[in-house]
């Protein structure tokens, strides 16, 4: 009895607000903020800076969606999630979308009932070792102690890799990237394994990044992308096409700097459809005509986001590689806006 009164009091007080049932899009619009699940802290992908402002590659996807849906790229509530809590948070409606360098796998899609709306980073699992260890290949790691994040696909890939190569290892399970970094630096494990991008991001925060090397083996495919719940295709479409809009914008040469003049001046019909000066794509999504323009102008196109958060100019210094546009020999490819 007491508890329900207490709950009632807080409901009245407006703490427990929001809805998660049928239309996530309507809920987000009604709420005025987007609840976006991110990692608890991986520099370059999603991490709060010294002022508590979330920054990073995944964060930009969230902000782009918020800009497209709500018209305000700052109307995002970032919910830090661990490997354990991320799927429940999404399934239970605590967050509207998850952009937490999550690998698209069969079982997550089919068994856990999540819809991956696309891939924003093609990654693979790698190993980082101190150069002083004198190891040049992952196959030389027989008997090594390996730090690995629990609840990730990397944990399973690791077991598979060592079994396939018939070598042994001691796993040190850790919960967050921050912990893994501390363990690795303290020498509690010989090597740290996670997505190659994550390794690069982690290494960038070290005091002496030059003393650590990434081994050449990439032992798995890790297509990372944002995901939403099964069964709400309308909302899934919004997130999917916001991501595609960012990718298409790069392909068509639309940047945050020239998006306004492109909208009025471009003669390319696809640019016009994308930016809403021609056709009714926005309306079909349940948004207004400027949705993609807002997303692009607030965050930049895919290439710009990549360059400012994790690109070669940043401390993380990832090259585009697989994540170049298909026109440049990469895998980043958006279906057409038509």
């Amino acid at each position: 009895m007491k508890k329900s009164v207490f709950l009632g009091a807080l409901t009245v007080a407006g703490l427990a607000a929001g809805a998660a049932a049928a239309g996530t899009l309507d809920d987000v619009k009604a709420r005025g903020t987007l609840n976006c699940g991110v990692t608890t802290g991986l520099v370059g992908f999603a991490a709060p800076d010294a002022n508590g402002e979330w920054k990073g590659f995944d964060v930009s996807v969230c902000r782009a969606v918020a800009a497209a849906v709500l018209g305000d790229a700052t109307a995002v509530e970032f919910v830090p999630t661990t490997g354990k809590t991320r799927f429940t948070a999404l399934a239970s409606g605590e967050i509207d979308m998850l952009a937490r360098n999550t690998t698209w796998t069969f079982s997550r899609d089919v068994d856990l009932k999540f819809t991956f709306v696309g891939v924003n980073y093609y990654d693979g699992q790698g190993f980082m070792v101190p150069k002083a260890l004198g190891v040049s290949s992952a196959k030389e790691l027989d008997g090594a102690t390996v730090c690995v994040q629990t609840g990730t696909t990397t944990e399973l890939n690791l077991a598979d890799f060592f079994r396939a190569n018939n070598i042994s290892y001691d796993p040190v399970p850790i919960e967050t990237n921050a912990e893994g970094q501390q363990q690795y630096l303290a020498g509690a494990c010989d090597t740290y394994t996670t997505d190659a991008s994550g390794l690069a991001a982690t290494r960038a925060t070290f005091e002496n990044p030059g003393e650590h090397a990434l081994l050449p083996e990439i032992i798995s495919k890790e297509p990372l992308g944002p995901l939403v719940r099964h069964g709400d295709d309308e909302w899934g479409d919004v997130v999917r096409w916001t991501l595609n809009a960012l990718i298409t914008a790069e392909e068509l040469g639309v940047t945050s700097a020239n998006v306004n003049e492109m909208a009025s001046g471009s003669t390319n019909p696809e640019v016009k459809r994308l930016l809403g000066t021609e056709g009714t794509l926005g309306e079909m999504l349940g948004l207004d005509a400027d949705w993609a323009m807002r997303a692009i102008s607030s965050q930049g196109n895919y290439g710009e986001i990549f360059a400012t958060t994790i690109g070669e100019e940043t401390p993380i210094a990832l090259s585009r590689g697989l994540n170049a546009q298909w026109t440049n020999g990469g895998l980043i490819y958006s279906p057409p806006f038509r």
């Binding site: 703490l15 354990k84 809590t85």
Partner: peptide, 25 residues
């Protein structure tokens, strides 16, 4: 953190702080 959310009515969502307060209480 992972279970309680399923026990609330589908249209509501109770934030983590409140769920933790309920369980610790």
């Amino acid at each position: 953190s992972v279970m309680l959310a399923y026990f609330f009515p589908p249209e509501s969502s109770v934030d983590l702080f409140l769920r933790v307060v309920i369980m610790i209480t």
